[in-house]
């Protein structure tokens, strides 16, 4: 500490001053808004991923005929996987199915019945685009055309429910985004206006000594845009910290490999920060430039 004081006698005081000045709190307010903006952007970018994640949990079970040979099963599996609508397939033979059911029931039904009534099956997961009632019924018909398939089973109601829920969710996210966006704009605008408001007498004095409007405005805008840039840096830093700390929990919802989306996100945080601060400052300074001295007191 003493070394710092020796070399920079003013450093400590200046640091304390700047930390507790309105400069710092303005930057912090902007940073927090931009952080929330980033979260919202992240949500929007990953809405499709989130939707797909939910929809692709819809499973279709193809019950296979009893006498199907293993070669045909493999062939069927290959055939299914080569279609554009199938995401994954998983073959469950009758023994495994029985074991699982035994576990679920907690009772050895094979022993009780004397034989295994279950058939081998194929668990199929379709891509999200096909996980709606219309496509599903078409797919069902397609599946039934395979000679090995005896029966197609899926939860129709679940598919319906999921679709309507996802639609509702999309609408909610849209409304929420618009609302949040409005709030962000209002918050940044208010922060900037307050910081300019505190300088209103200064602006008036500058006009009195013969400075043009643009000459007065320019330094204010530069300073605000700097606030915006620092705020964006802080916001991106916080987002990055959250990503890295919760990477494993979030990996199903957020694609960390998708660097294009992340670049767009970072880019829009900076763009939003810069445009909003510049625009708000421009409007706020103009407001006080138009005012006569007497009006400044109200």
């Amino acid at each position: 500490m003493s070394i710092v004081n020796y070399f920079f006698p003013m450093a400590k005081e200046k640091l304390r001053k700047s930390l507790f000045s309105s400069y710092f709190s303005t930057t912090l307010s902007i940073a927090l808004v931009l952080f929330l903006f980033g979260l919202l952007g992240l949500l929007l970018i990953n809405t499709k991923r989130l939707k797909d994640y939910v929809m692709e949990n819809v499973g279709v079970t193809l019950i296979l005929k009893e006498k199907t040979r293993e070669v045909d099963i493999l062939k069927l599996q290959k055939n299914l996987e080569s279609t554009p609508y199938i995401k994954s397939t998983k073959f469950v033979d009758r023994q495994t199915a029985a074991e699982e059911l035994k576990k679920d029931l907690g009772e050895d039904f094979v022993d009780f019945l004397g034989y295994n009534p279950l058939l081998s099956s194929m668990d199929v997961r379709v891509h999200a685009e096909y996980a709606n009632p219309d496509s599903m019924s078409q797919l069902e018909a397609k599946f039934l055309k395979f000679p090995e398939v005896q029966e197609v089973y899926y939860q129709r109601n679940l598919v319906k429910q999921l679709n309507s829920n996802v639609q509702k969710l999309s609408l909610i996210i849209l409304i929420l985004s618009i609302l949040m966006f409005t709030i962000f704009i209002a918050l940044i605008n208010n922060t900037i206006r307050l910081s300019i408001y505190s300088k209103r007498y200064l602006i008036n004095s500058m006009q009195l000594v013969g400075a043009t409007r643009s000459f007065i405005r320019f330094p204010f805008i530069v300073k605000s845009v700097l606030h915006g840039i620092y705020g964006a840096i802080i916001a991106c830093f916080i987002l990055l910290m959250i990503f890295t700390s919760y990477q494993s929990e979030l990996k199903d919802f957020i694609d960390f490999q998708d660097s294009v989306s992340l670049a767009i996100l970072v880019g829009s945080i900076f763009t939003f920060g810069i445009i909003m601060t510049a625009l708000s400052t421009y409007l706020a300074v103009n407001k006080f430039l138009r005012m006569k001295f007497d009006q400044l007191y109200y």
Partner: peptide, 24 residues
Amino acid sequence: KMSDIPLLRRRLGIIFQDFQLLSD
């Protein structure tokens, strides 16, 4: 004109009663 006001003020030397120094 609004844009002429600064030009006029530049050619005047004004000693304001309330000083109007930039306090910052």
